[in-house]
Design a protein around this nucleic acid. Sequence first.
DNA 1: ATTCATTGTCTCAATTTGTGACAATAATAA
DNA 2: TTATTATTGTCACAAATTGAGACAATGAAT
Lengths: 230, 230
Amino acid sequence: MDQKDFLTNIAFDSVVFGFSGGSLKILIMEYHNTGFFALPGGFVQRNENLNDAVRRGLKERTGLDNIYLEQFYTFGDTARYKPEIMQTILESGNYSLEKYEWLLDRFISVAYYALINYKEVVPQPDALSDSCEWYDIDALPPLIFDHADIVAKALQTLRDNLDRKLVGMNLLPARFTMNDLQKVYEAILGEKIRRTTFQRKMLSLEILKRHEKQYLGKAHKAPYLYSFED
Amino acid sequence: MDQKDFLTNIAFDSVVFGFSGGSLKILIMEYHNTGFFALPGGFVQRNENLNDAVRRGLKERTGLDNIYLEQFYTFGDTARYKPEIMQTILESGNYSLEKYEWLLDRFISVAYYALINYKEVVPQPDALSDSCEWYDIDALPPLIFDHADIVAKALQTLRDNLDRKLVGMNLLPARFTMNDLQKVYEAILGEKIRRTTFQRKMLSLEILKRHEKQYLGKAHKAPYLYSFED
DNA sequence: ATTCATTGTCTCAATTTGTGACAATAATAA
DNA sequence: TTATTATTGTCACAAATTGAGACAATGAAT
């Protein structure tokens, strides 16, 4: 974290979506002894592509490569500049204020959202944080800076993209039932979808491959399993 | 242009769309004695919102306030860093390389597109440029850095937004005919649209106010004028 | 008066979406 | 073994949207 290795005044933040227990969740970090909650983020190395920097950051937090990632907005208001918060975070972590003075400068932040399979991830805190955990999108703690705005815009963009991009797939394991997929869509949109219409639409896209049935041990017809591979 | 007044490593570029002669055009700058063509852009002052910086830049180039503006992507590949080009530009303009050394550093660029009424604008070059002119979107000169990619992505985003946002209006004068509006849509989409379907769709949106007819002195029925005001 | 190009609107067909019906099925209960 | 139950896959029909053309109305030129 030496200043000379990084670009100044520019950062990134990631809204990492996962799906579990029927609801949409995101990763939130908590900083040591401060009560501050924030999105996972980071800085761009001088010899590194912006997109690669974000992937590097996600790899550290989730252990995953090849994550589905979309850049959605760059936040650059002066109102998001609050050096006293960053100073508190550094002091609570016993970091030298001289050495890390550059972190107290103003940053413009490029925001990305990621979609990952919840089950494949064990969230890892970074050096400054004592936790990195999943929070239900409807029950987030208060976030520092403008991170609540970033989350809201991420969710809005995800909804807007839901039809145009094949977004739902990235939140599920390789094989899933039509009902699983519908629940992901419902969690993202925040509303119920009609079963028959949804099923017809998904099948008409001709991107789903049908596999053997899944026997659930329940008292009814077993559903087919699907995957996105072809 | 003193370094200490600006954020480092971060810039913006604008794709300014106008409509004239049946085709879509954008503003391109040419630098003194270099043969280099580029999008109009600039840097963010330390006490200035990113969005305000872009509006300031557009005001200087077009003289217009209250421009329709959308941020669409932030370009941060290392491949876009070509200090020798910037050096040539500075030298050709007889700028001190010491004083403006910071401009030779790597920049991540936040890209915006603007939609303006062609007739209201007299493009103004900046200090480093000897021209700022309209170019047909299909006949652009070769552009420096990754500016051709930026234009391509701007156009793609504009097309994607065409139905969801009321984009066409910003490219026309206050009053226009249905045919004018259709030609704007056709220029953006790059394809012909069926007249009756287009007319029905536009009227069904209930955002157009119909005014008196426009007598063209032509040998046929006169069209209504419309506006977006309500 | 006739001709001409364009406009505004209508009609019908084709497609997509909303809504419910219904048989098939896998486990459970009787 | 047989009924019961919840859920699934598919179909049928209605409603809404879009595609495609027809046609009369109109303002100016001939």
